[in-house]
Simulated assay, not measured.
Amino acid sequence: MLVKSMGTPVVVPTIFDDFFKDWSLSNFSNTDTTLPAVNIRENDDEFIVEVAAPGMEKNDFKIDLDNNVLTISSERTTENNEVKDDYTRKEYSYQSFKRSFNLPRDIVNQEKIDATYSNGELKIMIPKMEEAKPKPKKLIEVH
């Protein structure tokens, strides 16, 4: 609402301004969903991808490999109902993420990729092909 005060227009908020404001600009979720932290380690035998995802279950994850792109995704919906004497409260929570990684070509053994989930950490072991593993030092004898 616009009101003139001594010749100067002044904006006075009304209850309608609060009611019709753009709700999409506000975050009403208390879950603050973000992408999980990921560590990638490499040793002589494999690559290890570690994803921090506490509170999840192993069946919440979908891991697929398509054209050397490893994709880790998760969708989880929870519903909480609370019924008391004179009211009912329902709350829904939705969490999802998707991370993709390009695997090096002709280095990883795609058939033997394995994943485990324990103590809030998803661990994906990506073994290297035998040809890609470092060879031991070889002494060449001079004849």
Rank of each mutant, 00 (worst) to 15 (best):
P13L: 00
T14I: 05
I15C: 03
F16V: 01
F16M: 02
D17M: 01
D17F: 05
D17Q: 00
D17A: 00
D18M: 00
D18E: 05
K21T: 10
K21P: 11
D22H: 05
D22G: 02
W23T: 15
W23K: 08
W23D: 15
W23L: 12
S24Y: 04
S24A: 10
L25N: 08
L25Y: 04
N27V: 09
F28R: 03
S29D: 09
T31E: 09
T31D: 08
T31Q: 09
T31N: 07
D32L: 11
D32P: 11
T33C: 08
T33V: 08
T33F: 07
L35M: 04
L35T: 01
P36E: 03
A37E: 00
A37P: 12
V38E: 07
V38L: 03
V38T: 07
I40F: 07
I40M: 03
I40Q: 05
I40R: 01
I40E: 02
R41A: 06
R41F: 09
E42Q: 03
N43Y: 03
N43G: 06
D44L: 03
D44H: 02
D45V: 00
E46Q: 02
E46D: 02
E46S: 12
F47K: 04
F47G: 07
I48A: 06
I48N: 00
I48T: 10
V49L: 10
E50W: 11
E50C: 02
E50M: 09
A52R: 08
A52F: 05
P54Q: 04
P54T: 07
P54S: 10
G55S: 06
G55K: 02
M56T: 12
E57G: 13
K58M: 09
N59M: 11
D60R: 01
D60T: 09
D60I: 10
D60N: 12
F61M: 04
K62W: 14
K62E: 11
K62Y: 15
K62C: 11
D64A: 06
D64C: 12
L65D: 01
N67K: 06
N67P: 13
N67W: 05
N67L: 07
N68A: 13
V69Y: 05
L70N: 02
T71Q: 07
T71E: 00
T71M: 06
T71P: 09
T71N: 03
I72Y: 01
I72K: 06
I72L: 00
I72H: 01
I72Q: 04
E75S: 14
R76C: 01
R76F: 05
T77F: 07
T77V: 14
T78M: 04
E79W: 15
E79G: 09
E79V: 10
N80D: 11
N81Q: 10
E82S: 14
V83S: 02
K84D: 12
D85N: 15
D85Y: 15
D86E: 11
D86F: 14
D86W: 12
T88S: 13
T88E: 15
T88P: 14
K90S: 13
K90H: 13
E91I: 12
E91R: 15
Y92C: 08
Y92N: 13
S93G: 09
Y94K: 10
Y94W: 10
Q95G: 10
S96N: 12
S96A: 13
